[in-house]
Write a protein that binds this DNA or RNA. Structure first.
Lengths: 237, 237
DNA sequence: ATACTTCGTGTGCTAAATACACTTTCAAAT
DNA sequence: ATTTGAAAGTGTATTTAGCACACGAAGTAT
């Protein structure tokens, strides 16, 4: 085998760890929230814990989409969650914090190995969400997407980009109801849009638009127990 | 160090090879083309060579964007080429062809290692393109994007997705002129749009639109050497 | 001079986007 | 029973963007 002749000089024999990070969005009727986890800390280290977006290494026999689905299901029991790959983050210096390196040294078999992460975002019905203990996480929190604390690694950048991509897709594909309960009113939906897009919308025009796209259908049912005129309920078509 | 207590079971210590594949688009005034390379073949194997999209492993100290830029510059001397990450392809079975595995065995230090690839597309001015010998490539070809032969790995899928993303971005950001010479006529630009979007456009409406977006500026110069009324030349703003 | 070819432009029509305000319906309180 | 509060639900007029359509102008070649 005359490898030498035809072969380009072999490069990068180190390999990388590949992880998937999920920016999980939820909506509580007032604010758009992102799910954070408290990073597990080494027992011996008594620093303040860091928060992060849930993520994990991609297993050897698992596709990226499968990894993302698994991460979500380790945090919650929900099935059929909306999930979308949005960007790969591969800067060689994305892990530069002291705490980040400490964390890697404790929880990774090969802490020196470069880590590439594939960003996904997912849309979750907060009403149905029940946190579960996940192997990679301690406590979980929901925080306002417009007021995110400083996160581990490059997760602030990841969340920011996820929001931009979500805005894009909300306009293009009207996926907003994925964040609402099964049954919802058009006012709820409008408020959701206003918060994600960060601007006020006109009620009548909004309704015309949504009804024209035919992504939702009216139910024969009305809101109950509100102290004003009850709204008609809708569901996704 | 009581690792055992706080640590989730370590997973996936194998690591992956991460590569970047570039779908390079060019335009020759009639067809939208994609740059393919002839994959180097092991000397001892006398099979028909396969074609592929240019790509290479990401080096240890290199970001994804840098890797993409390097791959392009190994094929051509051009600088400042338009480049955009569009998707990560990470199916564990993306390398399933016999030839693909043979190729990996010859040209990769760790041929069994799973390979993840990050897809980029780039827009190149064909007129200025001069192919260069790249370490990872044999000959290079331009082929019609609507008539792509069977490619190595999952590169047919990669090219297809790149085209979809290019269409999206062409509409949103009017990046078409990246495929044309410095100076171009609006008719050339329109033809480019028609070919990328695969549909006919109305001349007057197209001009109104382009001029309204103000992505191009008129030059004080006209086409020369054409056997009809010469068109005004434009350049990107 | 003529023929040939593409360039470059204006208008009317239709559809979509936007701005805007009042009446209705229910529950709660009196 | 009546009133009050609070969001629901609805129509129209105006502006703007999208679309279809045809002909004279400016150059080259003979």
């Amino acid at each position: 085998m005359s490898k030498k002749n035809s072969e380009p000089t072999p490069k990068n024999t180190l390999g990388m760890d590949v992880s998937v990070d999920c920016v999980v969005f939820g909506f509580d009727n007032d604010t758009l929230k992102v799910l954070l986890i408290e990073q597990k800390q080494p027992d011996t280290v008594h620093l303040k814990t860091q928060n992060a977006v849930p993520g994990d290494l991609v297993l050897d026999n698992e596709s990226l989409d499968e990894a993302a689905k698994r991460i979500l299901q380790e945090l919650t029991s929900l099935k059929g969650i909306y999930l979308k790959q949005f960007h790969a983050f591969g800067d060689p210096n994305r892990v530069r914090g002291l705490k980040d390196q400490q964390w890697l040294r404790t929880f990774r078999v090969n802490p020196e190995r470069r880590v590439l992460t594939i960003g996904y975002y997912s849309l979750v019905k907060l009403s149905e969400f029940k946190p579960k203990a996940a192997s990679f996480a301690g406590k979980t929190y929901w925080v306002d997407v417009y007021n995110i604390p400083s996160l581990a690694f490059d997760h602030n950048e990841i969340v920011h980009k996820a929001l931009l991509m979500l805005r894009h897709e909300l306009m293009a594909d009207h996926i907003g109801f994925e964040l609402l309960p099964e049954k919802f009113t058009l006012s709820q939906l409008q408020k959701l849009y206003e918060i994600i897009l960060d601007k006020k919308l006109d009620k009548r025009n909004f309704r015309k638009n949504i009804l024209r796209t035919e992504t939702v259908t009216a139910l024969e049912e009305k809101q109950q127990g509100v102290l004003h005129k009850p709204a008609q309920l809708f569901t996704k078509k």
